[in-house]
């Protein structure tokens, strides 16, 4: 019976009307950048000025065009084998985005299912599933990925599957928590008391109400997976050459850090720009979808 209850604007609805979805400048930047990256990945063969894997030993370690001795032939310079950096960056986005997005799709599918089941039915099922989550959380993830990838080999598909099968724990934990608190809400009890089947209640009333947090985590998780993919490639356990990955470019560039700084700096900048865009989008979604943050 608080006075604030009926103050307009102080108790915002969970359902956000379309007109309030206006973008913040950061989110607009994020969406624009993400669109550019996606187009880059899709249109790589059209956009890349050179073949990303063909060495050109006459043009090795050419600096970017704005640096002294740079050339307009290679806008971002070339690496130690004379391969065009811009072309390699464009192709590298394909791996980063595939691993990021497909990994999240798989991980969220597993994690959301686990979280819904564990939270809604509790009991022994919950104990077993959360036991699995705790086991996966106890092993530092890079170590686990490295070991698993070393054992099973390194291809794009395998990488996505491995990431999906390990990375679902965040989704499971958050969804389970949300389900537990939703179950306390009376509309779930109301659905039971009209004789609704529990599975229908779960899919119709619980799932839509956890979608908000899921979307936010998924967005931020894409960023985390892109960094993870880069780390694994950097350590030599990513998708193997000749496929181009940003992480591998960084690892190669590191050896020339004293003489050709751009080889390490530019791929890292690309990764940071992409993850930053995703974080901006994720934060904006959080502000929009989480009623606690809207005021």
């Amino acid at each position: 019976m608080a006075d604030t209850e009926t103050l307009p604007g102080l108790s915002p609805p969970l359902v956000v009307p379309a007109r309030r979805l206006h973008l913040s400048p950061l989110a607009a930047f994020g969406l624009a950048m993400l669109t550019i990256f996606v187009l880059m990945a899709v249109l790589a063969p059209l956009l890349a000025p050179y073949d990303p894997t063909t060495p050109n030993l006459r043009a090795r370690l050419v600096p970017p065009m704005w640096v002294a001795k740079g050339s307009a032939d290679h806008i971002l310079g070339t690496d130690h084998l004379g391969r065009d950096m811009l072309s390699r960056l464009i192709y590298g986005s394909r791996i980063a985005l595939s691993v990021g997005f497909l990994g999240v799709v798989l991980a969220s599918f597993i994690g959301v299912s686990v979280g819904l089941i564990a939270g809604f039915w509790r009991g022994p099922v919950d104990s077993i599933l959360m036991g699995a989550v705790n086991i996966l959380l106890a092993i530092p993830n890079t170590l686990l990925y490295l070991t698993v990838l070393a054992v099973f080999g390194q291809s794009l598909l395998l990488m996505i599957i491995v990431i999906g099968c390990i990375n679902w724990t965040t989704f499971a934990r958050v969804v389970r928590g949300e389900v537990l608190s939703l179950k306390e809400r009376e509309f779930i009890e109301a659905s039971r008391s009209i004789g609704q089947h529990p599975v229908v209640t779960l899919l119709r009333h619980v799932l839509p109400n956890v979608l908000g947090p899921i979307i936010v985590i998924a967005t931020l998780n894409v960023a985390a997976l892109i960094i993870l993919e880069a780390s694994l490639s950097f350590l030599g356990f990513g998708v193997q050459p000749p496929t181009v990955t940003w992480g591998r470019m960084l690892a190669d560039g590191r050896n020339y850090i004293a003489t050709a700084w751009w080889l390490a700096a530019i791929p890292g900048l690309m990764i940071t720009t992409l993850t930053l865009s995703l974080i901006f989008i994720g934060d904006w979604l959080r502000d929009r979808l989480d009623p606690r943050n809207a005021s």
Partner: peptide, 22 residues
């Protein structure tokens, strides 16, 4: 803090080496 989250830490490490060590 957003930048710290967005940067891969190995890249940050390399850049720190580039600036402060090299």
């Amino acid at each position: 803090s957003i930048l710290g989250q967005a940067m891969p830490n190995f890249w940050l490490g390399i850049m720190l080496i580039l600036i402060f060590a090299v």
